Amino acid sequence: MSERTMSNVALVPSVRSRLWASGISFVLGFAVANYGILMISKPDQWVWLGVAILLMLTGAAGILFADTNKSVSFWAVLGIEVFLVFTLLPLLWTFTVATTPSELTATSLWPDEVTWSAFSDVLGSDELRRAALTSALVSGVATLVSVPLAIGASYALVRVKTRGRRVVYALVIAALLMPLVALTGPIADQVIAFDRYGSRWALVPAALLITLPLSIWLLVTVFKRAPWSLGDAVRADGATRRQWLVRFVVPAFAPGILVVTLLVFVVGCQDYVLGAALSTTDAPLPASLLMARGDLESSSATIAAVGLLWAIVPAMLLLVAPRRIHQLLGRSYR
């Protein structure tokens, strides 16, 4: 048996595994259906019944395809369905809160009356526009500083055979995983000592704590997946440095570096810990919403509207470059 055939056989889940996944999916759907019928009133009841039908159909399909050679894992299908439920239902609730008239209170997942006044208030608010501009500027500058530095660091970690590079990479991961709350006190003391507390630009050095380790971590994946043998062949064929850059470097690295830059920018825009700790007047948007939670008019609807508008950029990035993002954040076993 060839190596490829053996790998394909190993990818086919066992009958027992499929039956367990099917049984759990069916029982979970049955429980959701009963809870929805007995405890949930309309129109939300239809949401519960829809989720229950989906889970029960998955269980039935798992039983039908249990004894086949198709490499379909119903544990993965069940996991995706649960993930979608826990992602889409909160988004639906956020949309309902954002579009509910100010004189009413949202009580169900489906909006009874839809009004777009909260979105108009958000787009017309000088305070929120200034906070969004602060987030974009701080994250943009930090990203522009981090990515070039990360390119050199990632190249060295992947291509340069030096002692201690695993330790360096472990330190990068440790910096990426370090809770920012533990660093806000010392950073705030330094900002106050330099008399820059409250300044928009004081947030940029602190934002590097997020953007630089993340850039290195993502770009290491880009450099590991690069076809370096092709680059060596181009140089061996007598290509000049300019031809090497045009024919190898740009096609091999530019798409990945662009996606990394956009991902780092989006992640940097989501910070609220450093923004709330280092600025009170020109705070980024997430920190502004955190600190002004009780001061905003129609607070719940406004915050929900801001959240939906703020989610447009990462959603567009996910739709435009899903394969690149999967390669950076996931792992393919095929």
Score class of each variant (00 low, 15 high):
residue 2 S to C: 05
residue 4 R to V: 09
residue 9 V to F: 09
residue 10 A to Y: 08
residue 15 V to A: 15
residue 24 I to T: 15
residue 29 G to T: 05
residue 30 F to L: 10
residue 38 L to Q: 13
residue 39 M to N: 15
residue 40 I to C: 05
residue 43 P to W: 00
residue 52 A to Y: 06
residue 54 L to N: 13
residue 55 L to D: 11
residue 62 G to K: 04
residue 65 F to D: 11
residue 66 A to P: 13
residue 66 A to F: 09
residue 68 T to M: 14
residue 68 T to W: 13
residue 70 K to S: 15
residue 74 F to R: 00
residue 76 A to F: 09
residue 76 A to C: 09
residue 77 V to N: 14
residue 89 L to D: 01
residue 92 L to C: 08
residue 94 T to G: 01
residue 95 F to W: 13
residue 96 T to A: 07
residue 100 T to G: 13
residue 102 S to C: 04
residue 103 E to L: 12
residue 110 W to T: 06
residue 114 V to F: 00
residue 114 V to Y: 00
residue 114 V to W: 03
residue 118 A to F: 00
residue 119 F to E: 02
residue 119 F to I: 00
residue 123 L to P: 04
residue 124 G to D: 01
residue 127 E to I: 07
residue 136 A to L: 10
residue 137 L to M: 12
residue 139 S to A: 15
residue 141 V to F: 00
residue 141 V to M: 00
residue 148 P to E: 06
residue 149 L to H: 05
residue 150 A to Q: 01
residue 151 I to M: 08
residue 152 G to N: 09
residue 152 G to T: 08
residue 153 A to W: 04
residue 158 V to L: 07
residue 159 R to G: 03
residue 166 R to P: 09
residue 170 A to M: 05
residue 171 L to C: 07
residue 171 L to G: 11
residue 175 A to V: 03
residue 176 L to V: 03
residue 178 M to F: 02
residue 183 L to H: 02
residue 185 G to A: 15
residue 186 P to A: 09
residue 192 I to D: 01
residue 192 I to K: 06
residue 204 V to I: 11
residue 208 L to W: 02
residue 221 T to K: 06
residue 226 A to C: 10
residue 229 S to T: 09
residue 238 G to Y: 01
residue 239 A to K: 08
residue 245 L to G: 11
residue 246 V to F: 03
residue 247 R to T: 02
residue 249 V to P: 01
residue 252 A to H: 03
residue 253 F to D: 07
residue 255 P to S: 01
residue 260 V to M: 00
residue 260 V to D: 00
residue 261 T to F: 12
residue 261 T to P: 07
residue 262 L to K: 09
residue 269 C to H: 06
residue 269 C to N: 01
residue 271 D to G: 14
residue 271 D to N: 12
residue 272 Y to K: 04
residue 274 L to Y: 00
residue 279 S to N: 11
residue 282 D to A: 13
residue 283 A to Q: 10
residue 284 P to M: 02
residue 286 P to Q: 03
residue 288 S to C: 06
residue 288 S to L: 04
residue 293 R to H: 11
residue 293 R to C: 07
residue 296 L to W: 12
residue 296 L to I: 02
residue 298 S to T: 04
residue 299 S to L: 04
residue 305 A to P: 05
residue 317 L to M: 05
residue 320 V to R: 14
residue 320 V to S: 15
residue 323 R to S: 15
residue 324 R to P: 04
residue 326 H to L: 11
residue 331 R to G: 11
